[in-house]
Design a binder for these strands. Sequence first.
DNA 1: TTTTTGTTTAACAATTTTGTTAATACAAAA
DNA 2: TTTTGTATTAACAAAATTGTTAAACAAAAA
Lengths: 208, 208
Amino acid sequence: MSEQEKKSKEQLILEVAESEFFSKGFDGTRTVVIAQKAGVTHAMLHYYFRTKEQLFDRIISDKFELISQMVLSVLGNSELPLIERLREGIASHFDLVAANPLLPRFLITEMLPHPERYHFMYEKLNSIRQLYTDLQKSVDEAAAQGVIERVDVMMLLTSILSLNVFPIISSQFILQMVGEVGQFDQAQFLAARKQETIEMIMRRITKK
Amino acid sequence: MSEQEKKSKEQLILEVAESEFFSKGFDGTRTVVIAQKAGVTHAMLHYYFRTKEQLFDRIISDKFELISQMVLSVLGNSELPLIERLREGIASHFDLVAANPLLPRFLITEMLPHPERYHFMYEKLNSIRQLYTDLQKSVDEAAAQGVIERVDVMMLLTSILSLNVFPIISSQFILQMVGEVGQFDQAQFLAARKQETIEMIMRRITKK
DNA sequence: TTTTTGTTTAACAATTTTGTTAATACAAAA
DNA sequence: TTTTGTATTAACAAAATTGTTAAACAAAAA
């Protein structure tokens, strides 16, 4: 028996379901397709997870930590000095998003239109407040010392999220649009974006 | 008869359908719901548009120009000097996206996963190439004169798109996340973002 | 007025998708 | 080696969703 076949059917269903839900959304996903791709009868899917909704909920809760980190990691390590903290926060956030490129689109297409369904998620993200206030303090201190310019942390975080997430979501689209003009491939493009975000944020906070 | 009632049923269906498709996506939209919200029997919907798909296609082609502008406007007016061209391009692009906030999410959730369905769209966007090359030339010239730093236009456009689009898509989410800490409302937040994008791009291209 | 054309409705049909069940195989424990 | 619980299948049922039709109706044309 190969490694693949050793996996329990339950596990197989979960893996296929994750990829289906993330790429097609809840409404676009067909339980029979999940079953078929997992190589099981679709009755098995209902046997293990009862309904499509419960299967979906299971996937979400399995991704709970990852989703939290997807936002929290951008705040960086508060032990480090400000500049390092930002560089490190941006880089690790970028890597996390790049490693899970379907997740942001999923959040945008599923969480935003159904906020009631994800209240638990929003609650969890309240823990961001502490780190947020903390980061604003670091910024204000550094600004007082004349090291950097005083900036609003909400604006700064929004910029970082935008610059990191959007290109990963839409790299296909951008590369296709500009086409042969630039001859980037996707890996090069993403590597360049990671540096570009850091560069832009650094320029944003340095005193003129 | 009121203004509303004077509208043809066909027009009513189209308006409701647009809002439904844009907020819930193709898969999440129910034709009976469209009919119900438009105050007509759902047979009418089929009478005018035959199928759900044809209704959808009709909406898309009606939005065709807008969708094109959604990308093209960021390139600005090539008659203007570079700095003005960028400022104007960023601002008008921001305004366009802000006036149609559901469209970008729709593009991300419908166009990206079904590229075959929107080939005509991608073709149209080929017209971006001319303007793109043109903008790179302006940048190179200004850089040669030492006015600005030499930057890659693909990176620059990606940054502008990211900084303009992402905050508009996810303003709800961001505001909720940071919550009472900053007491921005959505209008203030978006106004601030528009300026912030311009500021960041200007800092990115100025020589240190 | 009669005809014609396009609009509207209600009832129904077809299809797609999800969910259930009863029978059976299987594996592990007693 | 019976027993017990779990896993599996095929066939079926139910629900949801889309699409059709025939007949009524209204408006405009002849």
